[in-house]
Design a binder for these strands. Structure first.
Length: 191
DNA sequence: TAGGCCATCTGGTCCT
DNA sequence: AGGACCAGATGGCCTA
């Protein structure tokens, strides 16, 4: 597993109380009243703009039932706001860690070749999709009783898995097809 | 060095 | 009201 970034992330300046000095000079004029428009906060020496309202197709969670001029929450003090932001950051980190754990579980659930190389998230999702399609095809084949003469269900399933996985990978233009097939073949022989 | 991938921060919106 | 979810922004690491 690659040691990506995490340690170095400490160099990224978090939103500390110093940074959260939302004195008037650190808030772009008018943004606190302009609900549904753009807010910019001066953080770490640069302005960070956040588009809101009509600029976003789905706006976070999605609906537009509250419209672009939703009441903005106000907290009693900058300190309280800062505490809530830090707590929210921690929850978001935990949520993303859970999501990454789920990705890791998915990686381990699908057969792939380059065991030394960690699958990216998009690769994991794509392979999982193909794998599910392949398994679905097998199940449908078994349930409809379409087994080649003389083959046991296990043999037929392995062959069918190989065939389906190959088909899906070809459709997606995967360059590692031959390696996948080797892996799948050994996988099916073991089963 | 550019591009890919990722972790993290952030604020808006939805849900309970 | 507060947490969950989401997507944009940002910056670091790695590889070709």
């Amino acid at each position: 597993m690659k040691s990506k970034g995490k340690a170095a992330k400490s160099s990224r300046k978090p939103w500390t109380e110093q940074d959260l000095d939302l004195e008037p000079e650190n808030i772009e004029p008018g943004t606190s009243e302009q609900e549904g428009s753009e807010a910019s906060v001066h953080i770490g020496g640069s302005w960070r703009g956040v588009l809101r309202g009509g600029d976003r197709e789905r706006g976070g969670g999605g609906g537009t039932t509250h419209g672009p001029h939703r009441h903005r929450r106000s907290h009693n003090s900058n300190k309280e706001r800062n505490v809530r932001r830090l707590e929210s950051n921690e929850r978001e980190r935990q949520r993303m860690h859970k999501l990454n754990n789920a990705f890791q579980a998915l990686r381990e659930a699908i057969p792939h070749v380059k065991m030394d190389k960690k699958l990216s998230k998009i690769e994991t999702l794509t392979l999982a999709e193909n794998y599910i399609k392949s398994l679905t095809s097998i199940i449908l084949g078994i349930s409809s009783g379409r087994l080649p003469p003389g083959e046991t269900p296990t043999e037929a399933s392995a062959a069918r898995l190989l065939q389906c996985y190959q088909q899906h990978l070809e459709e997606d233009g995967d360059e590692s097809l031959s390696q996948f097939l080797t892996q799948i073949h050994s996988f099916s022989q073991e089963s």
